[in-house]
């Protein structure tokens, strides 16, 4: 059984968002890493890129699958986690502890469109059914 963290917001494409002030950290959920299996590659987009909602901010690959991370908010990438490139397995081990990018949000009200932990749990149950 995969875990869901209460202090995060969630997108339908299985990204989690952790908000601190005006900055949103983005990663993939435990459910997503479980679906993908052993990751062999991960990549985060570099800093200084302006992103809109649904723009690419990272990607992950297992042997049989590839998945991209889409930004749930608009803004500018201010930090990019390069360590995931060398050690993608940390995402399998601790999906909620491994952020890909941190985005300085241009419109934090966009967070209202995301799910809370409870809603995301239900969403995953429906997807697995």
């Amino acid at each position: 059984m995969t875990t869901v963290k209460e202090d995060r917001l969630y997108a339908k494409t299985h990204e989690w968002v952790e908000v601190e002030g005006n900055v949103a950290a983005i990663g993939i959920t435990d459910f997503a890493q479980d679906q993908l299996g052993d990751l062999v590659y991960a990549e985060a987009e570099p800093v200084d890129i302006d992103v809109e909602i649904d723009d690419l901010v990272g990607s992950v690959e297992s042997v049989k699958m590839a998945s991209d991370l889409y930004s749930p908010v608009a803004g500018k990438i201010i930090e990019s986690n390069e360590s995931i490139e060398d050690a993608p397995e940390q995402i399998n081990e601790d999906a909620f502890g491994t952020w890909f990018v941190k985005i300085e949000m241009s419109d934090p009200s966009q967070l209202d469109g995301l799910m809370d932990a409870e809603a995301y749990k239900k969403f995953c149950e429906e997807e697995s059914a």
């Binding site: 062999v40 590659y41 690959e61 297992s62 042997v63 049989k64 699958m65 590839a66 991209d68």
Partner: peptide, 13 residues
Amino acid sequence: TIQAREQHIRRER
């Protein structure tokens, strides 16, 4: 190997 670049996995990407 490194097949996640390819069409049968990534399709239009």
